[in-house]
Simulated assay, not measured.
Amino acid sequence: MRYRQFGKTGWRVSEIGFGGARIGGLLAKDGGRASSLRTLEAACDAGINFYDTADMYSQGESEVLVGNAFRNKRDKVFIATKGGYCLPKRKRLIQLIKPFAKPIVRALGLRRSAVPAALSAPLSQDFSPGYLREAVEASLRRLQSDHIDLYQLHSPPREELTGSRLQDALELLGRLKTEGKIREYGIALDSVYDAVHCLDMEGLASLQMPFGLMDLQALDGVFDKVSERQLGIIARGCFGGGALKQSLTETELRASEPQWERALQIKRLAEQMQRSALEAALQFALSVERISVTILGMRTPEHVATNLQHYAAKPLSNEEKRALLAR
Results as ranks from 00 to 15, higher is better:
G20T: 04
R90M: 13
P103L: 11
L119H: 06
D30I: 00
L204Y: 08
I94L: 15
N318R: 14
T53N: 01
L119Y: 14
E61R: 12
L244S: 10
A118P: 00
L189E: 14
N49V: 04
T294P: 02
R142N: 03
A270D: 10
G221I: 11
G47R: 11
P122T: 11
D55G: 08
A43G: 10
A21W: 13
P122D: 09
L65I: 09
G130H: 05
R158D: 09
L213C: 05
I97G: 12
F127S: 01
R141M: 15
L93A: 13
Q208E: 14
L173K: 06
S62T: 00
G67T: 08
L207F: 07
A243C: 09
A243L: 07
G163S: 08
I182L: 09
G10Y: 06
A169Y: 05
G241M: 03
A243E: 00
Q309E: 09
Q246A: 15
F50V: 00
S58F: 05
Y3G: 02
R4H: 07
R22Q: 15
G19A: 04
L161T: 10
T53H: 10
K29S: 14
V288K: 11
G203V: 05
A326P: 02
F284I: 01
S276V: 06
A114C: 09
L150Q: 07
R12K: 14
S128V: 02
E289S: 13
I97C: 13
F127H: 00
L264W: 05
S145C: 02
P157L: 01
P157T: 04
S145N: 04
K245L: 08
A195Y: 00
R111S: 15
W260P: 06
L286P: 12
H197R: 00
I48D: 07
S227E: 14
F223N: 09
A117T: 10
K321P: 00
L27P: 09
E63K: 12
S227A: 15
Q125M: 10
I16K: 08
P99C: 07
C198A: 10
E320S: 04
E15K: 13
Q259H: 12
P156Y: 06
V105K: 09
A101D: 14
A101W: 13
G163E: 05
G174T: 15
E61D: 05
K76R: 14
G174K: 04
F78I: 15
G180V: 01
P88Q: 04
D126E: 01
L204K: 06
E252A: 14
E252V: 04
E202V: 13
E261T: 04
G237F: 08
G25N: 07
S120G: 09
M209F: 03
K225W: 00
G174A: 14
A263E: 05
T251G: 11
K82W: 11
Y185F: 15
R4C: 07
K177L: 07
P258D: 09
S287I: 05
Q309K: 12
E15Y: 05
G163K: 00
R327M: 10
K181Q: 13
A263P: 08
D30C: 11
E228I: 07
K102E: 15
L150F: 01
Q208S: 11
L176V: 06
D215Q: 15
Q125N: 04
Q246L: 10
K102H: 10
A312Y: 09
Y193S: 15
H310D: 12
R2M: 08
